[in-house]
Design a protein around this nucleic acid. Structure first.
Length: 667
DNA sequence: GCAAGGTC
């Protein structure tokens, strides 16, 4: 018997389909596998890593484990996919040959070796080989199986070292932060090779914004033929600008006028990063990814985890576009099919998966609202990459007024091209009239505009994912998870992302004591070391020892009291701010904070309860909104209630209560 | 209960 191991079920089925005519799907312990009686072969798909590295259980108690002991701890592997392992063990007993057909990359090599170790335990003498393919097409798969090679144990080892380094750094620093801050439990503080540099980007950007000093400046505009032209100089003082403005006469001479027709490139095919960036117009990257996975599993779109931005030649683009004729995208498909259909392409070309594209037609009715949003995005993006280019007419005019140069430019969309398909980006048109070089025209008006320099912008989730990719932080499959992690650790909130004071404190603490973990350099260096391990030039021990020594020194040097104090200050500041935000105002009885509470019924209560029993009633139905308007009499924030019938003003909850009491006394 | 990486 022969056993072929693939990285996931989908690939296993595909391999069985391509290699074996008579394959049957079987299922044991809820795990699919495929069997070909004539070839006496099984194909089993894993779920990526089926085991994970960890410390032995005796290190589980954070408070009782000295941090330095983690540096001496051995690593153990814990089974993550019990049912797969159970099936693997049973199949392994029957086979003489195993072929590892996991993904052709570093993690794939390790995933294969993980399975192999389990097989060898029950069948030490099994023959093993490895096939490498970078596309799951019949040609690629057949070629790979005709040329099996040996397992690259060094490559697998390098991935294993990556796991250990991530764990040891992550665990030591996470526990260090959490223990010093007294945050052990569900609200712990964390650090890691990818999350910490990402958080640092957000924190540093916020610092730049806080430190930014806006500067005023003045610009001069003249109006000619109904449009405004701007002087090619800005002034730092208003007086200076006014002086120049006063010197401007009534006429301008046209010194340059050009009209150009330019083509605007269409969007590039979706890889994961581009997809998530665009999807972040509608939802969080995490949710977008989850929905994309669902659409993939139901067969509507291709594999959503890819770095590739170039369609492979084997993909029948015309057939895919034709698929949408007569559907919700009929108009769009016809625009595409009427053109030359030369696809756009991005810079990155990989061979493992094609760019994300639709694989089947869906109708609005069969998908949920969010699924449709993502599906429509993928379809529109796909069709737009095959569509004609958009064509703009650009006009530029240059005017001379008393030796001063004024400029204006305009652009007008003449052929919508892909823009009529990819409707998420608005074309900003700005039309200016015709001018003739040499003509003199009347200045209709002139003015000074006061402007100011703007601080850098905060990162949106979409921009952050792109930046992470550029800096080599995380992978296509993990970036959205890292961002989600930053939210759930309460390091950031909102989109664009704002860091909390806790995040400031954590980054400051890490910068002072373990700056390496806050820099993308750590990932870059790790990549180098892993390459060296894969090439056999460096061994695991040397690499691990470097990290252990580094962390050992950090733990020896650190002043945990000081660290804890600064972390607690940040956390306390966030707690205070949050309370302030959620609070309705000061308690008139004791000076504590009034908040919305719920005990059987909801009501306004005091944070000093049970010492203070002040309460005010609230309506039991509808959503409560605490506005920023404050009652003059009681100093409490006014409240609005939104029900499905509309929004109504409750006003100050104290006034509301008093008037209710009065009414009751009258009747 | 810690990381990041596969996969669902």
């Amino acid at each position: 018997m022969w056993l072929i191991i693939a990285e996931k079920d989908k690939t296993a089925r595909r391999i069985a389909q391509i290699l074996f005519r008579d394959f049957k799907r079987l299922n044991r312990y809820g795990v699919n596998y495929y069997f070909s009686p004539s070839n006496r072969a099984y194909v089993l798909g894993l779920k990526g890593h089926i085991v994970e590295v960890d410390f032995p259980p005796e290190y589980n108690d954070w408070r009782r484990t000295p941090l330095k002991s983690l540096l001496r701890a051995k690593f153990v592997w814990r089974v993550k996919e019990k049912n797969i392992v159970k099936l693997l063990v049973e199949l392994a007993k029957e086979v003489e040959r195993v072929t590892i057909a996991t993904d052709y990359d570093r993690e794939g090599e390790l995933i294969g070796v993980e399975a192999l170790k389990i097989i060898r335990k029950v069948n030490p003498n099994v023959k093993v080989d490895r096939v490498r393919f970078s596309a799951i097409t019949p040609a690629d798969i057949r070629r790979a199986f005709e040329n099996p090679v040996a397992i690259d144990y060094n490559l697998a080892k390098s991935a294993e070292v990556r796991q250990k380094i991530d764990l040891i750094w992550g665990a030591v620093l996470t526990r260090l932060l959490s223990l010093s801050a007294g945050k052990v439990g569900k609200d712990f503080l964390s650090a890691g090779r990818v999350q910490s540099p990402t958080l640092r980007l957000i924190v540093e950007r916020e610092k730049q914004i806080r430190e930014f000093k806006s500067k005023k400046f003045w610009e001069i505009y003249v109006k000619v033929r109904g449009i405004e032209a701007k002087l090619d100089k800005r002034f730092e003082s208003k007086e200076e600008a006014q002086k120049v403005l006063a010197s401007i006469g009534d006429f301008a001479k046209v010194t340059k006028f050009e009209k150009k027709v330019v083509e605007e490139n269409k969007p590039i095919p979706f890889n994961t990063t581009e997809f998530l960036k665009e999807a972040s117009r509608f939802m969080s990257p995490d949710k977008a990814m989850r929905i994309a996975e669902e659409l993939y599993m139901s067969g509507y779109i291709s594999y959503p985890r890819t770095d590739n931005t170039v369609y492979p030649r084997t993909l029948n683009l015309r057939r895919l576009a034709e698929m949408f004729v007569g559907t919700d995208f009929d108009r769009e498909a016809k625009i595409v099919l009427a053109g030359d259909m030369v696809p756009s392409k991005g810079r990155r070309e990989t061979k493992d998966h094609p760019p994300i594209h639709p694989t089947a037609v869906a109708s609005k009715e069969e998908l949920s609202k969010d699924e449709w949003i993502i599906y429509e995005l993928v379809v529109r993006r796909f069709l737009s990459t095959l569509a004609p280019k958009a064509i703009w007419e650009i006009r530029r005019v240059e005017l001379s007024v008393n030796g001063l140069t004024f400029r204006a430019s305009g652009k007008r969309l003449i052929e919508r091209g892909w823009r009529s398909i990819y409707t998420y980006v608005q074309a900003e048109e700005n039309v200016i009239p015709e001018f003739k070089i040499g003509e003199t025209i009347k200045i209709e008006a002139k003015r000074i505009a006061e402007k100011k320099t703007k601080p850098p912008q905060r990162y949106t989730t979409g921009r952050l994912i792109k930046l992470m990719e550029k800096l080599g932080l995380g992978t296509k499959s993990t970036r959205h998870e890292i961002i989600k992690k930053l939210y759930s650790r309460k390091y950031v909130y909102g989109n664009p992302l704002k860091p909390t004071n806790t995040a400031f404190a954590v980054i400051e603490a890490l910068k002072r004591n373990a700056e390496l973990i806050t820099l993308p350099d750590m990932t870059a260096k790790l990549e180098e070391d892993m390459d060296s391990i894969a090439e056999g030039k460096l061994d695991e021990k040397t690499v691990l020892l470097k990290s252990v020594r580094f962390l050992d020194k950090i733990l020896s040097d650190i002043n945990t009291d000081e660290l804890g104090k600064s972390l607690r200050e940040g956390i306390e500041e966030d707690r205070r701010k949050k309370l302030e935000k959620n609070s309705i105002g000061r308690c008139p009885k004791c000076g504590g904070m009034l908040v919305v509470k719920k005990f059987e019924k909801r009501f306004v209560g005091c944070t000093n309860y049970p010492k203070c029993d002040f309460t005010l009633p609230l309506p039991q139905k509808g959503r409560i909104y605490i506005t920023s308007k404050v009652c003059e009499k009681h100093g409490l924030k006014k409240i609005k209630i939104r029900t499905k019938d509309g929004t109504w003003d409750l006003g100050c909850p104290y006034c509301n209560y008093l008037s209710w009491k009065e009414k009751k006394n009258v009747t």
